[in-house]
Each structure stands twice: as C-alpha cells, then as structure tokens.
Design a protein around this nucleic acid. Structure first.
Lengths: 234, 234
DNA sequence: ACCTGAACACCGTTCAAGT
DNA sequence: ACCTGAACACCGTTCAAGT
C-alpha cells in the first residue's frame, strides 16, 4: 500500500520535492504534458498550487527535475557485459523509458543544466565505450551517433501515427483512403504492401537500425585502431 | 522590397493564411516558440489576435501549417543523383532547415495529419530508395534508421549546450569547473581532452554518423538482394 | 518552516457586434 | 467577408498574511 493519492483525494502525507516530482510525472504520463499545470498538480497532491513553490523554484525547475528522474529509470550499461551488449541493453532501455514517458523526449532541449542522474548515465555510456577500446574521438562519434539514433527513433515513434500493429493497420487504411495514390505513389506502395501486411509493427524497426549502427561502430573502431597502430608502429 | 513588417508597424496589406504562417515562423525563429502567442502574432501583423481566426482555425492548426511550411524548405532528393548522394544532400538539408527553425523539431509529434509538403517529401525519399534497389522491407528499414538519426541529431544539437566551437569551449570550461571530476571521470576526460581542444565542433559529428549509416545501409541492401536472389534462383 | 488567499499579468478562444 | 471589443475560463507567479 503506497501513499499514492487518488485524484481529489485528501492527503496528510508531508509534501516533498520527490513526491511533487513523482506525482507530476504520473500526471504527465496519464494526461499528457499539456495537462500538467501547477494548479492541477497541487490539486492532485491535496494542496494549493502556491505550496508547490516551497519545493520547486518554478515550473522550469519542476520539468528539469522530472527529466532527471526519468533518466534515473534507464538501465545503466553493466561493466560485466562487453561494450556492445552493454550498450545494446541500455539503448533498448532508453527506448522503453521514453515510451513510458512520451512527454520527456520533447522536453530535453532545455539543455543547460543536466541533473545528476543524467550526468551519471552519460558518464557510464562514455566509460563503456572507452573500456571497449574506442579512442577519444571515436567515443565522441559513437556517443553522438548512437544517442541521435535512439532519441530520434523515439521521436519518430511518436510522430508516426502507428502504435500497435492493429492500430497501424486501422490508421493506414484510413490514410490510404485519403491519399491520392497517383500523387504519392511510394507512400501508397509502402503503406499498402508493407505496413498493412499482418505482423508489421514499426517498433521492430528499432533493433534493425540499432544493430546496424552498433556493428558499423565496431568496424569503425577497428579500422581506427589499425590506422593508429600503423601510424605509430610504422 | 517585401511586405515584411517591422514590429509594431502598421500594414494595409491584406491578411492571408500564408502571411500569417510566414510571420509566425519568423516570430518563432527570432524569439523562440514560447514567444509565439496569438496576441503577439496579431500585433506583428498589425491586427487584433481575433482576426487570425479567419485564416487559421486555432493555434494547433497554425502550428501544423508552420511545420508543413518548414518541410517545404527542405531540398528534395534529386532524381539525377544516385540514391546515396541524393539522400546525403537531403539529409544535410534537413539538418540545416532544423537548425534554422529550432522550434520545429519538438513540434512534429502532433503526428496525425501531415501536410502536403511533408507527404511529398517523404514520398520522394521513399522513391529514391526504391529506385536505388532497396526492397520494400529494406526501404522501411532505411527510412526509419535515416530519419531517426537525422531528427535525433538535430535534437541532440539543441540539448547539448554547444553551438559554435568557441561557445562550446567557453561552456565546457564552466562545466568542467562545476563537474566533480572524480564522480564523472569519463565526462571529464571527454570534455577536457577532446571537446575543449581547438577546432572541435559538435556539428561535424553529423556527417560521421550519416556516412556510417548510409554505407551500412548500402551493405545491408546488397546482402538483402543477394539472399533474395539465392532464395529464388538457387 | 510551510501553507494559503487574493491579486497580477498573461494565455487561447467565443461571440455578438460592427463595417 | 473580414475585423473588433468585451468577456470567459484558464495559466504561472508574487506577496503579504496566516499557522
């Protein structure tokens, strides 16, 4: 039995930054980020909106805190795994976490001040690459390419109206009906002959691109190491 | 001499959906998306906010229109180029356009109704892959992987506090000072020994990942074609 | 130290009224 | 057909006042 609070329920539990953050995340998960207002969050916590400012300096601070909490949910790469499986697992975890908190992806452009969970996460990823034999420059390349792909995929998953494969089929049907086939022949073809086929699900595209990238990075690391060896060893 | 309107300037030019959209984009470019309000947009056009509703059904419609206009700025892949250079050029163009309109990237999750420019763009990309010898399944893979990477990179560019290399250096200095080196050793190492080095610029990471992906997709296409041939021929 | 009520300067959007 | 003024139901945030 948790201290979780039904909507409108009274609560004598003490307010705290953690409780504010967790409730805010839950609210955004359930109703979308646009439903998260200070007033509504206060209500959910059985408190006036103004009380929140005792635990959060403003709404921006609230959002930063939420983002960092979400980062904390991501599985860190394990030292016991080799770099590729370690990063593959954490990449899959990133995608799962972003699917659980779809609002988070569009909010991370705040940029400036990453929280401690965010920093720890990035540090571990970098460490995994370095220990895996990546040079500093190659680590920067790999980090950039991998994270771009992962966050971009999560973005894409939200942008495309597909969700489950059944839903995809339903929506694709509608889109097909609305699409002038002559004007967009390739969209028509892909939708009709591929997306609408039973068993198709956009989410399975994730691992294809991920493995493509991981394998390519491994190759790049090896040729990078070879050229460095050739240059120093003669 | 355009009909462009200085802030607060009177204008007797007729309002139109295009003029509303273009001014809105300019406003978002200059002041960020959060400065784009119906009232401010009206003011910029020398008109009351309520007049906008004659050309745009609501703010969501306004944002959809802006997004589609931004898509229209992206260079379409050329039929005269081979698939790889065609997609490389348009990928670079996507990134340039998103850098010009940073607010656009976070807004495309609206999903449901893509505009005509968006559809035409996607159709041409799919057509380029199909003409380049990609199977239907491989086209879906490539489209997903490539666009995930591109949009993700644009997102990353906004999320990281780096901009120009000089600015990167300045910010990295500050970050370094604030970072407990013992707690985040790999972040420390990368920042100090790589990002802070003269000539480093995050934006150059873009082409590394792009070419890595394009080459890997070409390889995947070839082995896909070979296995299909073997299955039917053998 | 924490919470509240009233208030301020904003939002998007409606609606009846003007031209 | 297009534009406006007043109004409504919201926002985030402040500040003095309560306990």
């Amino acid at each position: 039995m948790t201290a979780r609070n039904a909507a409108g329920g009274e609560s004598r539990v003490r307010l705290s930054r953690d409780r504010v953050l967790l409730t805010a995340i839950q609210l955004a998960d359930d109703g979308g980020i646009e439903r998260l207002t200070m007033r509504r969050l206060g209500e959910e916590l059985g408190v006036e909106a103004m009380s929140l400012y005792n635990h959060v300096s403003n709404k921006e601070d609230l959002l930063h805190g939420m983002i960092d909490a979400v980062f904390g949910e991501i599985e860190l790469p394990l030292h016991s795994d080799d770099w590729k499986t370690a990063l593959r697992k954490r990449s899959v975890s990133v995608r799962e976490v972003l699917a659980r908190h779809p609002w988070a992806n569009g909010l991370m452009d705040s940029g400036t001040n990453p929280g401690p969970a965010t920093l720890r996460h990035h540090d571990r990823v970098l460490g995994t690459l370095r220990s895996g034999g990546f040079s500093l420059a190659m680590t920067a390349h790999a980090f950039s390419a991998l994270d771009s792909y992962i966050y971009g995929f999560a973005r894409q998953e939200k942008a495309l109206p597909f969700d489950t494969s059944e839903q995809a089929a339903a929506i694709a049907q509608v889109m097909l009906a609305g699409l002038p086939a002559s004007e967009y022949p390739y969209l028509f073809e892909l939708t009709a002959k591929h997306v609408l086929q039973p068993g198709y699900s956009y989410s399975s595209e994730f691992t294809f691109g991920l493995d493509l990238l991981l394998d390519a990075l491994e190759t790049a690391r090896d040729s990078d190491a070879n050229s460095a060896q050739a240059a120093s060893g003669g």
